[in-house]
């Protein structure tokens, strides 16, 4: 039995790693080697693709731009979602259930046709091609997500926790920051990671709302398609590098996700 439980995640991880290995493998090859032959590892090992990315500002600024708006978006989303999720999980108020479900409906609209009105909206208020425009527009799908995830975790915390804290003389802010937030750390970790992730990989709005100054990395990558076909080596290297920032994020929030729930004082 013990052996089997160890096996399932391992097989899954191997399955996940195969395409990623192929991506990393290609990133160290020349485009000719990728297209010309089948090789399990690079025969003509080259870091040329990475050198191109790190020496060309139009390439590496893509990462800086993406990281900037993703960070702004994650911070905004969590800050406004925390009190809202608390309200949804603890109080009843006029229209609460409708509002809660309405939030999620904002994730359901197909983005293709909506891109044009978004462009008009952000041009009209003079924010076109700024990081803040992308960060704000991503709130559309990240805030509902954060509220839903946080509400789920907050509802798992018994209300006795709130009540005993008040009896012990905690004020609301003291209770919220010292007791409640640590109690739902797992939820905050997951919500933060998902906000980061969805904002990081979203391409359509980010591409529509930017031109030069705030152009995201995923849009920069479309440059690898030229009349001569794909520059696959470069695309692979750029793709490999897009995994890195998020890997750090999940590394830093892993303890919050894995943290057990401890009833009582922290």
């Amino acid at each position: 039995m013990k052996k089997i439980t160890w096996l399932i995640p391992t097989v899954y991880i191997v399955f996940l790693m195969l395409p990623i290995y192929w991506l990393v493998n290609m990133s160290f090859k020349t485009t000719n080697e990728i297209l010309g032959s089948f090789t399990l590892w690079p025969n003509n090992f080259t870091v040329e693709n990475y050198v191109t990315i790190f020496t060309d500002p139009t390439w590496f600024m893509g990462y800086v731009n993406s990281l900037t708006y993703v960070t702004i978006n994650t911070v905004i989303s969590l800050l406004v979602a925390l009190p809202a999720a608390y309200a949804f999980s603890r109080y009843r108020f006029l229209g609460d259930k409708h509002l809660f479900f309405w939030l999620l409906t904002n994730r359901m609209a197909p983005p293709a046709v909506f891109a044009l009105p978004f462009f008009q909206l952000y041009s009209a208020i003079g924010l076109f091609d700024t990081h803040i425009a992308v960060a704000l527009s991503h709130c559309l799908f990240n805030i509902p997500l954060a509220v839903w995830i946080l509400e789920g975790f907050m509802s798992g915390v018994p209300k006795e926790l709130d009540e005993t804290a008040y009896i012990d003389g905690y004020s609301f802010p003291q209770f919220f920051f010292k007791i409640f937030i640590p109690a739902i750390a797992a939820g905050i970790g997951v919500a933060a990671f998902f906000c980061f992730m969805f904002s990081w990989v979203e391409l359509l709005l980010a591409k529509t709302l930017t031109a030069v100054d705030a152009k995201p990395i995923a849009a920069t990558m479309t440059r690898t398609v030229s009349t001569a076909g794909y520059e696959l080596g470069l695309l692979s290297a750029a793709g490999t590098l897009t995994i890195v920032p998020g890997a750090f994020v999940i590394y830093f929030v892993r303890n919050y996700i894995a943290k057990g729930f401890a009833l009582g004082r922290v």
Partner: peptide, 30 residues
């Protein structure tokens, strides 16, 4: 587990499509 499992989620969607395209090609993909 957490770090490795999160990796596929973090790849921009156009790259996911492109990498699977090559990964699955019968002549040059694994």
């Amino acid at each position: 587990c957490l770090v490795l499992m999160a990796l596929p989620l973090l790849i921009p969607w156009n790259v996911v499509g492109a990498m699977w395209n090559i990964f699955a090609l019968p002549d040059i993909g694994l």
